[in-house]
C-alpha cells in the first residue's frame, strides 16, 4: 500500500508538495486531480524514490521510498505521460529490453500476450516504434509496467493521447489489476476518466490535498464543478 504522511518538498523557494498526507490501500485506485504545478509529478517522483521529501514520510508497503529505493522500485510499475521508447526497436523488442533490465524472462509468445493484454494489436508488435502513434507507445509503456507484475502502479497522465477505445481498454485493465490486488495511484487532468476508474479521488492544489472523496459519491459533472471551484479559489 501507499502511505504519505505530512510530506513536503520544495525546490529553492517554490513549494511543490506541502504537508501532503494520503493513503492508498491494496486493491484500491486513487485518482489525483490537479492543475499543472499542483504537485502531482513531485508526489509520484517521491513515491518512485527519485525525490526525497524535505519532511514527512513516504512509504510503499511499509518501506521508506528514500531509504529503500531499490527495494521499493522492484514493486512499482510506472507509466509516464509520454512513454518514450527506443524508436529503432519494435514494440516487442522494447518490451523485451525493459523486461531484461528487470531480470524478467519472458519468451516471445509471453511478450506478445502481454502486449495484446495491454491493447496493442498483433500486427504492430514487430513494427518499429518510430512508426507508432502516441497511443500505441503508451500501450507498450503500460505493457512494461504490467509485465513487471508490479504490486503498486503509479500513473502520470496515462491516458494522455489515447483514443477513446484505448482509454477504455486502459480503464478496464486498471480495474482488473486493482481487483487482482494492485495498489494504483493515477495523476490526471481527465476528470471523467478518473471518476470512472478510481475508487477515490483527491484534488491537489499548491501541493496540498484540498479535497478527498469517493467516486461513487459524486457524478462526473459534480466532480467537474467541484474541481473547477477549487481551482478558482
Amino acid at each position: 500500500m501507499i502511505s504519505i504522511q505530512q510530506a513536503s518538498k520544495s525546490f529553492k523557494e517554490t513549494t511543490a508538495v506541502d504537508k501532503l498526507s494520503l493513503e492508498v490501500q491494496k486493491g484500491e485506485i486513487l485518482g489525483l486531480l490537479g492543475a499543472n504545478g499542483a504537485g502531482k509529478s513531485t508526489t509520484i517522483n517521491m513515491l518512485l524514490g527519485f525525490l526525497h521529501p524535505d519532511s514527512g514520510v513516504v512509504r510503499i508497503n511499509d518501506m521508506d521510498t528514500s531509504r529503500e529505493a531499490d527495494k521499493v522500485r522492484k514493486l512499482i510499475g510506472y507509466i509516464p505521460e509520454n512513454v518514450n521508447l527506443y524508436p529503432y526497436l519494435s514494440g516487442i523488442e522494447n518490451l523485451d529490453y525493459f523486461c531484461r533490465l528487470a531480470a524478467l524472462k519472458y519468451n516471445k509468445s509471453d511478450l506478445q500476450e502481454i502486449l495484446l493484454t495491454c491493447g496493442l494489436e498483433e500486427r504492430a508488435h514487430q513494427e518499429r516504434v518510430e512508426a507508432y502513434s502516441k497511443g500505441m507507445r503508451q500501450k507498450v509503456g503500460i505493457a512494461i509496467a504490467y509485465a513487471k507484475k508490479a504490486k503498486v502502479y503509479l500513473l502520470d497522465e496515462p491516458a494522455s493521447g489515447l483514443d477513446p477505445l484505448a482509454s477504455n481498454e486502459l480503464s478496464a485493465l486498471l480495474k482488473k489489476l486493482a481487483s487482482a490486488g494492485a495498489t494504483i495511484l493515477m495523476a490526471s487532468h481527465d476528470i471523467f476518466r478518473v471518476r470512472e476508474v478510481c475508487h477515490r479521488i483527491g484534488i491537489l492544489k499548491n501541493g496540498s490535498l484540498v479535497k478527498e472523496l469517493h467516486s461513487k459519491d459524486v457524478s462526473a459533472n459534480e466532480l467537474e464543478q467541484l474541481y473547477l471551484e477549487y481551482m478558482k479559489n
Partner: peptide, 13 residues
C-alpha cells in the same frame, strides 16, 4: 531528456 532514464532505473538498471 526522453524520460526513459526514470523507467530504466525503475526497471532495475
Amino acid at each position: 531528456e526522453s524520460g526513459r532514464l526514470k523507467v530504466l532505473v525503475l526497471q532495475g538498471a
